[in-house]
Structure formats: C-alpha cells, structure tokens
Design a protein around this nucleic acid. Sequence first.
RNA 1: GGCCCCGUCGUCCAGAGGCCUAGGACGCUGGGUUUUCAACCCAGAAACGCCGGUUCGAAUCCGGUCGGGGCUGCCA
Length: 435
Amino acid sequence: MKLRIAPSPTGELHIGNARTALFNWLYARKNNGKFLLRIDDTDTERSTPEHIENIVQNLSWLGIDWDEGYELSDSNSYKQSDRFGRYEEIANQLLENDFAYEDDGAVRFRVEKDKEILFKDYVRGDMKFNTNDVEDFVILRSDKSPTYHLASTVDDIDYEITIIARGEDILSSTPKHIMIMNALNAKVPDFCHLPLLFGPDGKKLSKRHGDTSVSSFRERGVLSETMFNYMSILGWSPGNDIEIFDKEFAINNFDLKNVLANPAIFDTQKLLWMNGQYIREFDEKTFNKIAQETIETSLARELFSEEIERINLILSVVQERLETLKDLMGQVEFLLDEPFNVDKDEWEEVNSKSAQEYLTNIRNEFKTMKDFELDKIEAMMREQLKKLDLKPKDGFQAARVAITGTKISPPLFESIYALGQSSTIARIAEKIDNL
RNA sequence: GGCCCCGUCGUCCAGAGGCCUAGGACGCUGGGUUUUCAACCCAGAAACGCCGGUUCGAAUCCGGUCGGGGCUGCCA
C-alpha cells in the first residue's frame, strides 16, 4: 500500500492540503503502508522554492513524515519540474498510439465518446461518469510542459501509488486520469476523494478567508499537537464522542473509509479552545521550557537568569489562562527587564483617595515584611483592606495596575510574589502622589 | 447552463431501521466561584431542509424536490 501527498508549491502549506496529507499519512501508518511526498510544480509561473520549503517545514512541524519522496536520498526526483522530459516522452507515446493529437502546438488527449468510466471511491461509493461530459483535454502545453493531469497521472503510475486520496475538488477530473492510465495500460489505483474544508461562508477555504496557511496558525501560537488533533476531527471521528487524542490514538483508530463525505467548516474558535486544553496539559518543567522559548523568540534576546526565576514563579497560574502561546507575553511582561509603564487610562479608573491610602499602607507593610511569601502577602493585603474598610476590588485593582501596569494580569498575590519585594515597593511608590 | 458531490443544533462530530422524548464538543445564554482576565463547576436554549414511498416502525433505506458546494483553464 502506498499513498501520497502532492502539493503544488504555489503558496504556503494550506490547512486543506495539510488535512489531506494528514489523512493519507494516518492511513499509511495505520496499515504499515508507505507515504510519499511529491512536489507538483508543473505551474512554473507560480511555483517557488520558498513555498516548497514552507510546505516541507510545516509538514515536519505537524509530525507528518514521509518514507519516500522529496529530498530523501534516493536517485529519483520527486519534483515534477525535474521530470518534464519523462512527461513529454509519454505524451509522444500517446500521440503515436493515437490516444492524443496535436492542437496548435499543444497535445490534447482524445476522449472516446459514449463510454462510461466507473470507479469506486472510498468515501463516495460507486462513481460513474460519461465520457460525453469530458472534453478533449490538454496534456502537454505548446511550450512542451505537462499539465497537472498528465504529470500527476504519470507520477502516480511511475511511483506505484496504490491509493490516491485527495480533495474532492478533483473528483470530476478523475475520469481523465483513469483514461490516461488505461491508454498507458497501467493498473488503476483506488480513489478516495476527501471532503473539502470550507471557510465560515461555506465556500472552499482559500485566501479570501484570511491567512489559512499552517504557518500562520503556528505563528499565532497554536501548538502542533493542537493542529494535528483539530484537523483530524474535521470529517472524521474515532467514535464514542472522543475528540481530544494524540497521534498514536489517531493512527490506531483511523480509516479512510470512515471519513465523512460532507465538507467541514474550519472553526478557528474551537481550534483555539483546543489549544488552551493542550497548553493546560503540559507538566511544569515542559511548560516552563516552552514559555521561556516563546518569550525569547518574541523579545529576540535571551532571558537573564533572574528573569527566568521570576517568570517560573508565576507560570503555573499563567498556564491555565492561555489560549495560545502568543498570549503569554502580555501576562508576564511586567516581570521582565524591559521598560515598564502603567496604562494611564486604567490607572485613572482605579485611582482614588482610598486607593492612595491603601497603597501607602501596604507599601509600609511591605517595607518591614520579614518573610516575603505568598500567604503572608495575601494575609497582609487583606488585613489592610479591612483596616480601611475597603472592598477587595477597590484596593486590589489599584495595586494590580500599579504593580503589573494593567487591569488584566495574572492573580495579584502571585504577581507580587514573582516580582519580588523591592520592585513591588518601588512600583507602589511610583503611584503614590505625595511621595 | 452542463456534469458531479453533499444535506443531524450557528459550527464540528455521535447516530449504520426500534436503545432517539436525537448524544458529546465549541460557541451562545443564565447562575456559581472570584482581586482583574481567564480557568473551573452547574443549568439552559439550540438540529434530523421539505414532500412522497418502503416498513408494524425511518435521522437511518428509496425517489423527488429544495438548498449548499465543486468542476467545467495550455491552474492544480
């Protein structure tokens, strides 16, 4: 059994293609088959090396590896632009056998009329097309480059693909491919046309729905595990209402024949929710490492050990309020050796006479505090609240803005504890008017 | 227009003739917790497109209809 994914490098790896790759890969892995990566770059105008690189990188990021194909050391090329001679040779052969004819310099496949093309599709069952609905189609352009129909079919034959699982958008082209295979006396493989991924408007997912590349989600802080998992449950389910699972579980339970026939709308909200679930699952050590890397990337510098110490004190409570890794910076920024400033408008909103009193009092308490620890901090701050007969909100929010710079922050006591005694005192002092 | 595919809550999925007064998840609404934002917990609203047929019995099978989508390129 051998399956393949054959993206066109006319853009970055698209979620739709990634999902098709994923299903092919899962089926190959499940059945101990082979999975091949081929680059279908017959559109020389729009194909670029950068796009190839992006596709390769992101497939790897998703954990989708291939046993044969592009850039794996073997003497064959799996880039169609390297094989134009081969396609021209086949086109000439079809010409000689009268399966094709020349038309203004291009070569067209001669479609025999009144024939029925039958094939079985894994997800759609018995398919039947009448050749009267298929026009003679170009297989070789006048510049001698092959079209998709020729190149793809020749490669599927040459590389002995046994199951072609691809997007439903190519369903109506399948008769053409079968006709070429028949003309070449090749064995016709099995077909499986996977449902398309739609945007929120119910139309084929594309640039019009914004950036739909895998890399864009990666840059937004979506984890590879999330992407893998979420793409798996679009059009397929392992049953029993299970929807969060790892690679191994997916492989063990996957079957192309269980893929739904109807298209699925890609729901970013659910993807992000799922990402939050995955973030929450990391153990402390792993999450601390991921967090450090994320922050360093965002800052474009390495963190100092003091910064890492501070951050690690608060990460456990930050971890449970993240949707993506991108949200991390906003939560811990006040702990970094970076310019600190307090949001003016937010400060206006929380500042008041009683807030001033409260800040003055807790500052004095912090200055004499012996054991600067979480429970001590909380006890003291609550006690001072009582003394002034303030509601938690009035005192705490003022302290929060003064110390973290904003009304939205990690839990207050943890924030103070992580920041440290002297910095806390200094930041409070900054916001006390008559100091 | 022609050919083809598809049709269960707004969305993703469960359901393969009786277990369905249709289940789970996201989202949404209300409540709880609460120092912010989240997270978490509880509750709720929300769907078998429609019409026929088969059957004792249909979300499940068949036909039609309507609706959506794809293809119809010397793009893939």
